[in-house]
Design a protein around this nucleic acid. Sequence first.
DNA 1: TAGGCCATCTGGTCCT
DNA 2: AGGACCAGATGGCCTA
Length: 281
Amino acid sequence: MDSDTSRVSSRPSSPEGDDLFLSAVKKSAGFSGAVSSTQSDSPPELSADMRGLSSGDDNALGLKMFSKKDRKLLSETELQSIRLKINSRERKRMHDLNIAMDGLREVMPYAHGPSVRKLSKIATLLLARNYILMLSNSLEEMKRLVSEIYGGGGGGGSGAHHATFHPSTCGTLAHATAPLASHAAAAAAAAGSHPVHHALLPPTVSSAAASLQAPGLSAVASVRPHHGLLKAPSVGASPLTSGFQHWGASMPCPCSMCQVPAPHVPAMSSVSMPRLASDSK
DNA sequence: TAGGCCATCTGGTCCT
DNA sequence: AGGACCAGATGGCCTA
């Protein structure tokens, strides 16, 4: 069920066994991996065929939990059913992981829609990380400002300031929590880039108006280079979720809170994600 | 066509 | 013993 919304037609993440099975059968012989079964448990005979297991090839089954002796005692069908059971568990585990990943995508300030390409797993994780960092910085900044305004009176009521400045337009959750990103995105949009790519840059980058040269950008913005996260070239219309409408086009938030450069936070280095960093083709 | 991303299978290791 | 977790391998689909 990790529906790859952008690839809906082609790859149902969740077990749609029939299609896979058919393709597997086509090439049947000599294969080892990806075939599958899919359905929570495919018929043993299918599994064996698809994997090209020759009869008696119990090594292929690799059931470490059984000694060779035990394996001899088990019938082939038993071994297969065990293998299927293990496979099924693993599949379920991965599906659960994908569900969790989808849940993470849902709470990300990122476009969700049929026309928007789904974030890859790695991109989701990187963006989530940066989003958390950004929110943390925003919170710290809000605390700081509140203490300034009220003479160090403490950290409560951080939302008051903002509400005062933005009675209407700034009421969105996103703005209240992610001002820095909003500006980064606005800047990026103004520059003709895809705002989405910059919305969750590490705070350091965000404060730098999402300069394409900014360090750390390579780690995130290049996750999905310019081909973008949109299937269709409808980039003009912001693919952002409602939470980020505020940045919209032309109204940079004037409040000081939104303009305070974010504290320096170590960005995802390209070292940690070399592949992504070099992915900016 | 190459590269990216993904699902699945598989075997190994660790934990309960 | 059995399950969870992990990583490698493999092949399919999609996009540039």
